[in-house]
Amino acid sequence: MFDTLKKSIEEMLERHRQQPFLDACMASCALVAMADGKVSLSEQSRIDDVLEAIDRLSLFDVHEAIDLFNAYVDGIRENPVKGRKAALDTVERMADDAESGELLVRICLAVSQADGDYARSERDQIIGVCSRLGLLLEDFE
């Protein structure tokens, strides 16, 4: 019983530790997906793929992550300037973690290429993400 309790506590602590990355990931995905004003089915599918593929995100219920993504999308829809600023402020919390920042940029690129069209508006959003993280997009393209 003690081992089960200990494992449960360790999982809760790990989820707590990874929450800022989940927040930044869903914020950056929303920025890229909403770059053209709408979230496509292929972008939604790519985000699902990301949630399944990245170990740090597998700690979370997929519905929790998608709800978070949708909240950022709704914020951008309701007030594009304020919504994008809120998402970028969330992304910026990862600026001191180079590994997480680089992974976020790679995730953004994956979402931007989901529909086979790497649009200028998507690239501009990724540049904004890179700027907040202290990275250059050219290092990833």
Rank of each mutant, 00 (worst) to 15 (best):
L13D: 14
H16F: 14
R17V: 13
F21K: 11
L22W: 07
D23H: 14
S28Y: 12
A30N: 07
A30T: 04
A30G: 06
L31D: 05
L31W: 13
G37D: 13
E43K: 00
E43M: 00
S45M: 00
S45G: 00
R46V: 03
I47K: 03
L51C: 03
E52T: 07
A53G: 06
A53H: 08
I54G: 06
L59C: 01
L59V: 03
F60A: 01
F60S: 03
D61A: 02
D61K: 00
V62R: 05
E64N: 01
E64M: 00
E64K: 00
D67L: 06
L68T: 10
N70H: 13
V73C: 03
G75R: 04
I76E: 10
N79Y: 14
V81I: 12
K82N: 10
K82G: 12
K85L: 13
A86N: 09
L88P: 08
D89H: 09
M94H: 06
D97L: 02
E102P: 01
L103S: 11
R106S: 13
R106C: 11
A110K: 14
V111M: 08
S112G: 09
S112C: 09
Q113F: 07
A114C: 04
G116L: 00
Y118D: 06
S121P: 06
E122M: 02
R123L: 07
V129T: 08
V129F: 05
